[in-house]
Design a protein around this nucleic acid. Sequence first.
DNA 1: GCCAACGTTGGC
DNA 2: GCCAACGTTGGC
Length: 137
Amino acid sequence: MAYWLFKSEPDVFGWDDLVAKGDQGEEWDGVRNYQARNNMREMKKGDLGLFYHSNQGKEAVGICEVVAEAHPDSTTDDSRWECVDVKAVRPLPRPVSLEQAKVEPRLKDMALVNNTRLSVQPVTDAEWAVVMELAGL
DNA sequence: GCCAACGTTGGC
DNA sequence: GCCAACGTTGGC
């Protein structure tokens, strides 16, 4: 199983919005970046991801799960763009902020820290474990 | 609101 | 195929 990180602006679509969608989850649509799309194509059902609030909060606030693998993005006719569906699994007892990730030596190579503009990122097993530890899980 | 970083587009 | 121009993202 692989781990990922999904970025969203809470103003547009936040953690609470995903929770409100329940077990059916929500299409992670609107991605118009090849790297992010390629990451989504790699995802398998059951993979877990961090739900990160960009701009406001700047912290990972919850864990979500891939419930549908890559399929055409329903918000565009352009066949280049695909997306997965994710559902909320559980909130993090203690959200993990960008600031924390920056000062944590074990997280210095995270895409979140180095490649801030990528909206869908892979997270390594080791990074995931550290984030869970910081989150109080 | 500004600006740096980055990706994409389009002219040549 | 290069590179300048432009648009977008996201931290501050």
